[in-house]
Simulated assay, not measured.
Amino acid sequence: MRLLVMGGTWFLGKHIVEGALSRGWEVTTFNRGRSGRDVDGVEPVHGDRTSRVDLERLAGHEPWDAVIDTSSSELPPGDVLAATTALRTATRRWVHISTVSVYEGWPHQPLTDASPLLECPADADESYGYTGEDGSPTKYGFQKAGGERAVTDVFGDAAVLLRPGVILGPGEYVGRLPWWLERAKRGGRILAPAPAEQRIQPVDVRDVARFALDQAASSTSGGYNITHPDGMTFSGFLDACLSETGGPGAPVWVDPAVLVEQGVKQWTELPLWRTHAGVWSVDSSRAVAAGLGCRPLAETIRDTWRWWAADGRPVDHPRWAEHGIAAEKEAKILASV
Rank of each mutant, 00 (worst) to 15 (best):
L81M: 02
E330T: 11
A327R: 15
R206Q: 12
G246N: 13
R37Y: 07
R176E: 06
T70Y: 00
W180E: 06
L117V: 03
E104C: 09
A150L: 09
V67D: 08
S235R: 13
L242V: 03
M6Q: 07
E182C: 03
Q198E: 12
H323K: 09
M1G: 14
T227C: 13
P170T: 08
S235I: 00
Q201N: 14
W64C: 13
G129P: 03
K14S: 14
I16H: 04
G236I: 02
V95I: 15
M1A: 15
G146C: 09
D113F: 06
E148I: 03
A122N: 00
G231D: 13
P76I: 05
H108A: 10
L58A: 04
R176T: 07
A335Q: 01
D125C: 12
T89K: 11
R176I: 11
V205R: 01
W64M: 08
L4Q: 09
D303C: 02
G8H: 10
P178I: 09
A277C: 02
G60F: 07
D125M: 09
G169K: 02
G293I: 13
V67Q: 08
E119A: 14
F234M: 15
T300H: 07
T268V: 14
A114K: 13
T300L: 02
A122V: 00
N225A: 12
L161D: 05
I226M: 10
V160K: 01
F30D: 06
S35H: 15
P137R: 07
T300W: 07
L161S: 08
A326S: 15
G249Y: 06
V5Q: 09
L55P: 03
A335T: 03
L272P: 00
V260Q: 11
D153W: 04
D54H: 06
R186V: 05
L118N: 14
W64I: 05
V315N: 06
T50R: 14
P248G: 08
V282G: 10
G41L: 05
V203K: 05
V53S: 00
E299S: 13
T29C: 06
E269I: 05
G246A: 11
V258C: 09
E328A: 15
V208M: 14
D65K: 04
V102R: 13
L111R: 05
H61I: 02
A184D: 02
V42A: 10
I68Q: 06
S35N: 15
V264Q: 01
Y173I: 01
E172I: 06
Y173E: 03
D207Q: 12
D207R: 12
V258G: 00
T50W: 01
C241Y: 00
R49E: 05
A298C: 03
A309M: 02
A184K: 04
I226D: 04
P251E: 01
K332I: 00
A90L: 12
G222T: 11
D69R: 10
G132S: 10
A327H: 14
E330K: 10
I167T: 15
P251D: 02
E119Q: 13
A83D: 01
S73G: 13
